[in-house]
Design a protein around this nucleic acid. Structure first.
Lengths: 159, 159
DNA sequence: TTCTGATATAGAATATAATTCATTTTAAGA
DNA sequence: TCTTAAAATGAATTATATTCTATATCAGAA
């Protein structure tokens, strides 16, 4: 997701606000809500996609429906040189790893991992992380309960 | 998002896989891909929503398009009693706070925060977090670069 | 002011898709 | 085998997406 410089007007913001809340809202409904023609909405949405303002449409699935009940954050110290991110890319390839962040001050990464349970986490650390060259140490934080988990951005109310 | 016990078959898994990758895939396309009638897909998708397997449809927006270029994780120690989460709910109400997790071992929370820049973070900490009773201390980790950020779950390939 | 070009929108026409519903199929139990 | 419930199909209807052309809007140049 590259840094982009785009100019969005308040109609774009309204579209983003609607889409962020329900990505399956159809153009006709958006058009009705904003008092515009569906074709105009279609054009704007396509443009937002094309400018990579809208990156993706996700269905958020309840982890417990797939029996994925353990969420963990792991700090990982590596031998990666600053600016290089060899280990990071390896981490990013692991399906259970949802996020990989290069963090300041620790010569390392913070990753977010979802597994079935504690056994699954141990297994992942031993058999997957354990096989990655360049990991010097890890520190794991277990999530007991998630109170909020969204990726909604704050959208300006005016231009 | 409550814990749920549901029985999903491999067709449900396939639908979830498709929806997770593109929540705007229409029923007709899913039907074509799975070799079924659109009406059958419609029924299943509605059932998945109703059973709260699919929780929400999100549009993922590029943060930099909204000039939100700083991501931070903050560990927060509080005077919350175990089991009670007064501070957590206050944190969850802050729009810039995307996630609030109750974590093990630290009498505290881990939150994920998105602001325009460092000044925005300082402002948030001073004027918003600073006003919350019960916060004992904070430790902030700044994200320099995000290598991966998804919420896709690992979906079983068989029942 | 008047023209020009670029951009955005509306609105009509057509293509696709969603939705409903009656019928059929399937699978498990009696 | 019969019964029942759940799920799927396929046809019919309604709604939406998409395309296209004509207008409208606006900024800058003559």
């Amino acid at each position: 997701m590259s840094k982009i410089e785009v100019s969005l007007d308040h109609i774009d913001y309204q579209i983003l606000r609607i889409m962020q809340n329900n990505a399956r809202t159809n153009n006709a409904d958006i058009a009705r809500e904003l008092g515009m023609a569906p074709s105009a909405i279609l054009e704007r949405v396509k443009k937002l996609e094309q400018k990579e303002v809208i990156v993706q449409y996700n269905a958020k699935i309840n982890p417990s429906a797939l029996d994925q009940n353990l969420l963990s954050f792991i700090f990982i110290k590596t031998s990666d040189i600053i600016g290089e991110q060899g280990v990071a890319y390896l981490l990013a390839e692991i399906p259970e790893v949802q996020e990989v962040h290069d963090i300041a001050g620790d010569d390392g990464y913070l990753i977010k991992v979802r597994t079935n349970d504690a056994a699954g986490l141990v297994d992942l650390m031993r058999n997957t992380l354990g096989k990655i060259e360049g990991i010097l140490s890890t520190r794991t934080t277990i999530v007991l309960q998630t109170v909020k988990e969204e990726q909604k951005l704050v959208i300006p109310s005016k231009d």
